[in-house]
Amino acid sequence: MRRIGFLLSNDFQLMTLASQCVFEYANVVVSDCFYDVDNFSIEGGTVRTSLGMTVGTSSVQGCGEVHTWIVVGVNDPLASRVSFREPEFLREEVGHAQRIAGVCTGAFLLAEAGLLARRRATTHWAFAREMQRRFPDILVEEDRIYVVDGAIWTSAGMTAGLDMALAMVQMDLGAAVARSVARKLVMHQRRSGGQSQHSEMLDLADKSDRIQKALNYARKNLSRPLTIEELAETVHLSPRQFSRVFTQETGRSPAKAIEGLRLEAARSMIEQTRHPLDVIARETGFTDRRHMRGAFIRGFGVTPQAVRREMRDEELV
């Protein structure tokens, strides 16, 4: 039996407990009590959710052996006061637990405990840059669903905790069990850790009509070279005016924005189709497969081949 301990603190976000269902249904699938899930807090007793409900917890004192600790998040980690006892407890558990995870902004508590120092980690996109500012020794990957660095796991927003929990089940019980759990929970698929938290087009949204028109044109014509002159012509500006206005409104050059759109389109094709990488590179406007590979490493930190291998593994889940 593997004991999963959820560490709660007042004003935690109730949705972060949803991942408990993943472990519950893993037990159903294997017809055994493989996981034992408990709620804990430092002192025990009732803990208040951000919605005002209360949840009963046991004290971490004398909690016994826990295989995996999962620290839940709060709506605003910047406004929440962290008791020194929680980071101290987590530091002590590093040498005992097999895994320690932070769901959503729960990663801030791991950071306070020093568990993320010189490690890769993620958190909710709205707080990722603040985490990087406050803890410069963390390698924050703000555009990841979840990140695994050794025994330390962190996830993005609260629903990403489901994906992270499924990844734990896959590690513990295999791909077939994780796939069955996902089906029972009516999850379309388990998102891989490398998937983006948000869309390139959403990042570039809320701009003027002419810049949006140019972006929409680019997205529909990614297989073309898409020169500055061509994009400028679609919105009736000179190339120099277009570059200046585009950079002012989006905070990046047209070339960088177009590369972002190409990367997003290429990744989507890799994840959703079986087209050869050469074909995907051509269809999304990269010079060749080698050019696409370099862009992937810069943009995602992984190669297109790694994304494809990950998606093949997903098909087995």
Score class of each variant (00 low, 15 high):
D203C: 07
G260T: 00
M158Q: 09
R274Y: 12
S253P: 06
S196M: 07
N75R: 13
G106D: 08
Q170I: 00
A266W: 00
N221L: 08
R134N: 04
P136N: 03
T123Y: 06
R298M: 03
L7P: 08
H67N: 15
I138L: 04
R144T: 01
S253D: 12
S192L: 13
D278V: 13
G102I: 00
N75S: 13
D313A: 15
L109Q: 14
N27I: 00
Q212T: 15
D206A: 09
P136S: 10
F12R: 11
L202D: 12
E230K: 12
L166Q: 10
L215W: 01
H67F: 14
A121E: 12
A178Q: 05
R252V: 05
R309H: 10
V55Q: 11
A18F: 03
N216G: 14
E310Y: 08
R81S: 13
R282M: 12
D143K: 02
Q20K: 12
A18I: 11
E130D: 15
D288F: 03
D163L: 01
R81T: 10
S199L: 13
Q189R: 15
A156S: 15
G45P: 02
L263H: 05
E259H: 02
S59F: 07
L231F: 05
E92F: 05
G251Q: 01
L226Q: 06
D11L: 07
Y217S: 04
K256E: 13
L110T: 07
T16S: 11
N75A: 09
L185P: 05
L261S: 01
C63E: 12
R191N: 06
V140M: 14
R2L: 15
F34G: 00
R119L: 02
L316P: 01
G150Y: 02
M164E: 02
H291I: 02
K207S: 12
V60F: 10
I270Y: 04
